[in-house]
């Protein structure tokens, strides 16, 4: 009896969900017909008609809008990938430091996490861009010889030149996500029984080695799932790059939508592009999960 009733409830739920989707699709269709728009993607093959301040592949304003979107997608990918690397290093360092024996290190890491997590990311990005990077003099500063050159026109590290917009987004996203990752790492470390710490310390193993060989491997299963959602968050947060003039996918979509008036199609492409990007990150993390966590569970 009970099972039968729950089946009816399930059926009802399916009907409700389908009705909702139906209403939304119908509403979209009705409005598209009413405004005489209809869906069309032909504008993708017309010349974009705007320049991009940075691009990894060759790009000119005469190229198609589709190409401009692809180039900007790569811009997004580039800043996301670099930020993930920096945020992870920063986060693992700060997370481990919060459980370090050194009180100064502990305090500093606590201050970093506390401060950064309380301030909205948009404000931080605006700060990094307008105050930190654009506040640099226009004549390059070279603190350590020619290795690093900093100016408000660009940042050059070992001859590799980065725009200030890219640098600001990179630093902003890394510092912000680093603080979140630090908490994830700290939580993971706390999930390892205290006895494990005491055990390696009593064996005379150093802090760093013990952390790397004893604690972290046991903490990883708790860290990885939360870590991958931080990475996904980082990817989504990268759309705030529009606030500091970085030519990412969202900023370029924004321009194409206003120029073509094709808001629905533009947003569909935007949604699918981010879905693809996040599936990429998700896939990578699952692979890592399989490699790192499962062998640990098997033993």
């Amino acid at each position: 009896m009970k099972r039968q009733r729950s089946r009816w409830l399930e059926l009802l739920l399916v009907v409700v969900v389908l009705t909702l989707v139906g209403i939304l699709v119908n509403n979209l269709a009705v409005n598209l017909i009413r405004t005489g728009l209809g869906l069309s993607f032909e504008w993708l093959w017309q010349p974009a008609g705007f320049a991009l301040s940075e691009h990894t592949l060759p790009y000119q304003p005469g190229d198609s809008t589709a190409w401009a979107l692809l180039v900007s997608w790569l811009n997004s990918l580039r800043v996301i990938a670099c930020s993930i690397v920096f945020a992870t290093v920063l986060g693992v360092g700060a997370g481990a430091a919060r459980r370090s024996l050194n009180p100064l290190l502990r305090q500093l890491a606590g201050l970093y996490v506390g401060l950064i997590r309380q301030i909205p990311l948009l404000l931080q990005l605006l700060f990094w861009y307008f105050v930190a990077f654009l506040g640099l003099p226009s004549e390059p500063l070279a603190p350590i010889g020619a290795l690093i050159r900093l100016s408000n026109q660009g940042v050059s590290i070992l001859g590799l030149t980065l725009s200030v917009e890219f640098s600001a987004v990179l630093v902003g996203l890394s510092v912000f996500t680093g603080a979140a990752i630090a908490e994830v790492v700290r939580g993971g470390l706390d999930s390892v029984p205290r006895g494990q710490w005491e055990a390696f310390r009593s064996l005379g193993i150093g802090e760093a080695l013990g952390l790397r060989r004893v604690v972290l491997p046991q903490a990883l299963p708790a860290i990885l799932p939360a870590l991958s959602s931080q990475y996904l968050n980082l990817a989504k947060n990268s759309t705030l790059a529009i606030a500091v003039g970085y030519a990412d996918l969202y900023a370029v979509s924004d321009t194409t939508i206003t120029q073509t008036g094709r808001a629905i199609e533009g947003f569909l492409i935007l949604l699918l592009s981010f879905l693809a990007l996040n599936l990429l990150i998700n896939g990578g993390m699952q692979l890592l999960n399989r490699i790192v966590v499962h062998p640990a569970q098997r033993t």
Binding site: A51, S53, A243, V244, D254
Partner: peptide
């Protein structure tokens, strides 16, 4: 050639 630095808002 030129480099457009695009912002969302006139103040920026």
């Amino acid at each position: 050639p030129y480099k457009p630095i695009k912002y969302q808002d006139l103040n920026q």
